[in-house]
């Protein structure tokens, strides 16, 4: 049972932004995180702004240079988008193992990002794609990188009067591999123990760009930038991959919890980063053959 709360139901984005500006309230999209939290706390008195009627937040637009995803895009929408397997392979891999059908139909990309959880599965793939976020408020819009958006455990750069309205990124170029792996305590519908997304771009046999995003191993999802840097500039070898995987593990700041120990998580980061980089190197390389 949910405790009493107030629900505002704006019919337009402008109205929603006005409500956010003038009332202490929290945007409510799919509700798959916020409603269980409310129920667990059992405290009456919150105020939410329903995004259900804001049609302009729906939809995914693909252009050659950019993918623009409305904030109300659900995990199911990702799976149903025919262009997404090439526009964001890691995001599709992630969506397949995200919760169950019902939650995939309700949970939104923006909700998962704004909740700020280190185990938010949507985030590693988008971080690995250098996604940018557009936030709107009554005062205007601003765009910032997802990387800059994530501040600390359940803390983001969203101001209380702001609404995340879209997510965008450049689709991977030829010679780019973009992979995701989720390690959980069971195969279906599990909270992530370690989530890894990598992007590797290869030009003329050399790695020109590397992204390694890690979930559930620090207060926020984060990029292992030292590991990324270790990869750029030459071909990926067992040695460079090993160094990067080691660096990624070292950059992790996991905790012990009911799902796994910090030690194990670091170990799994090492193994999975190595594995995904190796696979990415092969996949990206083969695109030129």
């Amino acid at each position: 049972m949910l405790p009493p709360f107030e629900l505002l139901e704006p019919h337009s984005l402008d109205q929603a932004l006005k409500m956010l500006a003038t009332s202490e309230s929290v945007p409510l999209a799919g509700g798959t995180n916020l409603l269980p939290d409310l129920r667990a706390r059992g405290e009456a008195g919150g105020r939410f702004i329903s995004l259900a009627a804001l049609d302009q937040l729906h939809g995914i637009e693909h252009s050659d240079s950019r993918v623009l995803m409305g904030a109300r895009t659900t995990l199911s929408d990702i799976l149903h988008d025919p262009l997404m397997p090439t526009a964001a392979p890691s995001l599709v891999s992630m969506a397949k193992v995200f919760a169950g059908s019902m939650v995939r139909n309700a949970a939104t990309v923006a909700g998962n990002i704004c909740y700020g959880s280190p185990s938010a599965d949507v985030v590693p793939p988008l971080l690995s794609l250098d996604a940018e976020l557009t936030l709107a408020s009554a005062a205007g819009e601003r765009t910032l990188s997802l990387n800059d958006f994530l501040l600390d455990y359940k803390k983001t750069a969203r101001r209380p009067d702001e609404l995340l309205i879209s997510v965008s990124w450049a689709p991977p170029t030829t010679g780019t591999a973009n992979l995701f792996y989720k390690l959980g305590r069971r195969r279906g519908d599990a909270i992530t123990v370690v989530g890894v997304a990598v992007t590797i771009t290869i030009e003329k046999g050399n790695c020109t760009k590397a992204r390694i995003a890690l979930g559930s191993v620090a207060p926020t999802v984060f990029r292992a930038q030292e590991a990324e840097e270790a990869l750029v500039g030459g071909p990926l070898t067992a040695t460079t991959i090993g160094t990067a995987a080691q660096a990624a593990a070292q950059a992790s700041r996991p905790i012990d919890d009911i799902r796994a120990s910090a030690d194990y998580r670091r170990h799994a980061v090492h193994m999975l980063v190595r594995r995904l980089l190796t696979e990415a190197w092969q996949t990206a390389g083969s695109q030129h053959d």
């Binding site: 629900l7 509700g31 798959t32 409603l35 329903s50 199911s76 019902m102 939650v103 309700a106």
Partner: peptide, 27 residues
């Protein structure tokens, strides 16, 4: 479970399957 963990409350809403425990009646 009342929190989207078990699916016992699944129904179709305009043809899409949802956990009715995580769907507000207003929506």
């Amino acid at each position: 479970c009342e929190k989207g963990d078990c699916g016992a409350c699944a129904v179709l809403l305009d043809g899409k399957v949802v956990d009715s425990c995580l769907t507000l009646a207003w929506n």
